[in-house]
Amino acid sequence: MTDATNATIGEKMPEAPARGRWADVWRQFRAHRGAFWGMMFLVFITLFVTVGPLIWPHDPTALDIRSKDMRPFYVGLFAGEDSNVKWSWEHPLGTDNLGRDLMAKLMLGGQVSLAVGWVAMLLALFLGALIGVSAGFFKSLDGPLMRMTDLFLALPLLPLLLVMMLLFREPLRATFGSETGTFILIVVVIGITSWMQTARVVRGDVLALKEREFILAARSIGTPSSKIISRHLLPNVMSAIMVSATLGLANAIITESAISFLGLGFPPDFPTWGKLLSDATSRLQRFPERVIWPGVAISFTVLAVNYMGDGLRDALDPRIRGR
């Protein structure tokens, strides 16, 4: 499982031994055009949100009422010199209704959204794969684990969030400080409320796989269960896990904004992509850029992860690799 998790991130790959299986995987991965560009985009967006704020002169929370409601540069350029469109190179993507710079908000918002998205998604994936494989492979665990899945599917999300807030917000704040505490809370909340689909899908696949000949063969030569799972089952449920991963990332980024709305998430002046998107919806007609840019950021990140997942799965598949 840890192999699979690391592989999903895609960061460990270049450090793997230069020859042998991993070198092959890397070569195959690089040859996959979509995966390559997906990775490039992720590197870019990661740099944008981490290094960007260090370079960019504006503070995302600094108000400047005089330069409120600025339009992005392309609107200004397109409208021409003598129009009364309010824009400036100072704020290339424009400002919001309180004069906060949109570019700076996108950068800071991206930090949180990406961090929450990745961690929550990996947590959900880990739980989902673990429970799915265990339930599918070990008959005795199937009943209890799947009934637990039913229970989690049935729990109403909002009251659950409120209860978790009630129980854990103050202790977490006290232990980890305001921001880390909130982060942990959000990630855990999203993680434990979105693993069920992965678990059901993985279990379904495992149920079918474990009756296949190669598993029977492995078992008949006395391969221990742990080996069967890691060598034979996991690689074969990889594609389902990858799809869950990309959908899960999008889900986590959007869910974060809904949680902030309840007062469970980050403070109201702290931007995240999801929140930027939902806050700007009411001014969709007059300031489309305020929804387009965060929307593009979320979609393209998800798309990039999807392509990387595709490439990774192909690269890890021995039947394709080397072709």
């Binding site: 999008a250 904004s257 999801g274 979609s299 998800v302 798309l303």
Partner: peptide
């Protein structure tokens, strides 16, 4: 599909 999934219905 990916853009469709990552654009939430409230938008």
């Amino acid at each position: 599909a990916m853009v469709g999934y990552s654009v939430p219905p409230f938008f």
